[in-house]
Structure formats: C-alpha cells, structure tokens
Design a binder for these strands. Structure first.
Lengths: 198, 198
DNA sequence: CCCCAACTTGGACAACTGTCCCAGACGCTT
DNA sequence: AAGCGTCTGGGACAGTTGTCCAAGTTGGGG
C-alpha cells in the first residue's frame, strides 16, 4: 500500500475526523470510523496519535485556524461604515454557508470540550481568538471609514461574536439562509449607529 | 424496593439524564449511567422507554418546556421601552445564570438532533418555540410602553433569539457573567432604537 | 383470599469501543 | 548488498454499550 509519512497521516486522520463529525455528528467519530474515512488501518491511529483526545485537540486547532483564515480576507470597504459592515458580514456569512459542517464540528467540539479535562482551555482560547479577530476587523473598518466607535472595541467585538454565533446556530437548525442574511443586515445597521465621525 | 409507577419512573429517568448531561456531557449519558443517577436498575430503562432515543425526545421536550416556563414571567415594564427591554433581558439572564446546565443540555441535544433522524424536527420545533416566545414578549413590551416596532416583530424576534443564544454560548465557554450582562444591556439599547412612539 | 396486571430485578447477549502488540514490508543510508 | 528506522496491517485485549429476557414480587379488585 501507499506508504505515507506519519505527519501526512496525522493530517489525513484529522481531515477524516472533520468529515465524519460534520456529516454524522460527534458520536459517530470513533477511531474505526475515522480510519475508514481516511482509508487507513486502525492501528495507524495510535501510531500517529497517543489517544483520541490528542486528535480532538488538533482537530479543534486546525478548524479554528481554518475559520480564521477563511475570514482573514475580512474587511470590505464600500461607502460608509454601514454598508462596509454589512458587506463584511455578508462576506463572512458566505464562508459559513459554503461550509456549514465546519460549524457543526465546532458545535460538537465546544460541547465536548466543556467536560473533557484534556480539552479544557481549548474552547476558551478558541473564543478569545474570535474576539481578537472581531476587534481587529472592527478597528480596521472604523479606520477605513474615518469614524470612531462610541463603545470600547472589546465590547463591540463581543457583540459581534454573539451575533455571528447566534446566526450560525439558528442557520444550522432551520437552514434558512435568507433569514440569516436579513438578521445580519439588521445588526450591521444597528452597530453602524454606534459610531461618530472622527 | 419502593414500587414506582411507570410514569413516575419515566420522569425520574428524564431528570436523571438531564443531570448527567449537564454535569458530564452528552457522551456520559449512557443507559447505565442514567439509571444509576436515578437509583433505578438498568432493566427499568427499557421497561419505561422503547429506546434511548425515546428518552432523548422526551428530554428535549421537557427541557424546552421548562425553559419556556422559566421565562414566562417575562415582561418587566420599568419606564421607557429601553429600560423595560433591558430589565426583561436581565430577568431572562438570571434564569440562565441560575441554571447553566439547562443550556449545556440543550447544546448537546441540538448537536445530537442534527444527525439522529428520530430527533429530526425536534430541534426545529424547539427554535420555533423560541421565536414565538420572543415575538410575544416584544409585542407585549411595545404595547406596555406605547411604542411600535419599526421592523416586523418576526424579524426582531429572530434577532432577540440570536442574541440570547450567542450570549448563552459565550457564557458557557468563558463563564464571565459581567460581560454577558454588559452585552445584553448594549443590545437592549440598540433594539430600543427600533421603535417609534405610537 | 386469591389472582392478574403492573412493576422489579439480576443477569445475559452481541456488538462495539479505545488501545495495544508484533511480525512483516518498505525505502533510505552506508 | 546489507542494515535500520519508518510505516503497515491484521488480529487481539478488556471494557462498555444498548437491548432484552425470564423469573420474581407486589398490591388492589373480584
């Protein structure tokens, strides 16, 4: 059989786990199921990972990183702060709608991380990363549109994450993309009201 | 041993499952673990439920109902729409902070329901209930404060649910109640801006 | 008083789980 | 050609899982 380096196998297994969880849920992510999805023998699993938890830690990091990169393009300046915010949010939304499994996986991982000591802190760091990214995006938008926020960026970042998270979950449940975009647009308008020209 | 009617046993098992999932996560909710928590022999499980899925269906319905009742007190009118909205949200928040496990359980159930055909529709109905409750609350608030919403209540209800959901998840991860209240207050002010005197 | 339906219970089952071992095959270095 | 670390893959392990039985016990209605 095709010989694969341990590093490549790790990557294959992580991607396979991602696919399995996205399609069949966290409970289906057994070592055997993951190996089958990756086309690897069962023993390859513990040749590459000390335990299943180790796989999950890496899965979380990789998924969060992928998500951050996906929205790294980030700021889209079009006219005023209102339009720019709306456009930026819509752009972000496009990445979610294009890969909802990613969010399904994160949902499962978050729940799992709350009770698995080996994953403690992973979820927290994941959300801190969200908040940092959101804060950066908001600052960049304000700069580009020559306005200042009338609330601390950290608080606004938190509000942004709350909205994106909420919209994502609602979409995962009812799969109504129009409602999602409508909600995002409305919030963009609201948040844009929290600026003053500088 | 104390003889218990099948109906009571069902209730005991559902409550036990709730406690187990809230404290140890969805993965820990095995039939044996649930029965142990309920102080019932393993065989009692399948005397009361045809399968584990049936238990989960009932758990979801009971949990959603409990949540709806908890926030049924609902509307708190104090001064203008802004203050009333804020107070109502804070009141809701108190119920979440008092019983975060309920939200942990719902998180797990939602993820599970996405992939279990026997639970398909349960999550959707759960969210529809949220939206209805939110719409009712918003209408009542507007009435009490003699204002009208400048957007359709359905859309506002969706926004409310998005916010409450997002705040809840953020809290479950970082357990920062101050940040949660601050975020809620900010959103209350924003939403209050979407009214005009009637 | 007795009997039948409702309830209890320990044990068993086959399937599945995470993890591990070990003999073998590969391919790079010397 | 020979050696050696890297990778393969089948099989096995002990434990856990959901589910089910068949034999028991109970208490209220005839």
């Amino acid at each position: 059989m095709a010989r694969v380096s341990a590093a490549d196998r790790r990557r294959q297994l992580v991607e396979a786990a991602f696919r399995v969880i996205g399609a069949e849920g966290f409970a289906a992510a057994t070592t055997r199921r993951i190996c089958a999805e990756a086309g690897a023998p069962v023993a390859a699993f513990h040749y590459c990972f000390a335990s299943k938890s180790e796989l999950f830690v890496e899965l979380t990091e990789v998924t969060v990183a992928a998500l951050r990169d996906a929205q790294a393009g980030g700021v889209h300046v079009v006219g005023g702060i209102g339009e720019s915010l709306r456009e930026t949010l819509r752009q972000w939304w496009a990445t979610v709608e294009a890969a909802p499994e990613r969010e399904v996986v994160l949902t499962g991982l978050t729940h799992h991380a709350m009770h698995e000591p080996s994953l403690a802190g992973v979820a927290r760091r994941q959300y801190e990363a969200y908040h940092r990214t959101a804060a950066t995006t908001l600052s960049a938008l304000a700069d580009a549109c020559a306005v200042t926020w009338t609330l601390p960026v950290e608080q606004l970042a938190r509000m942004l994450v709350v909205v994106t998270d909420g919209v994502t979950i609602a979409y995962l449940v009812d799969r109504d993309p129009d409602a999602a975009v409508r909600t995002l647009d409305a919030f963009a308008r609201l948040l844009a009201g929290l600026t003053s020209p500088s």
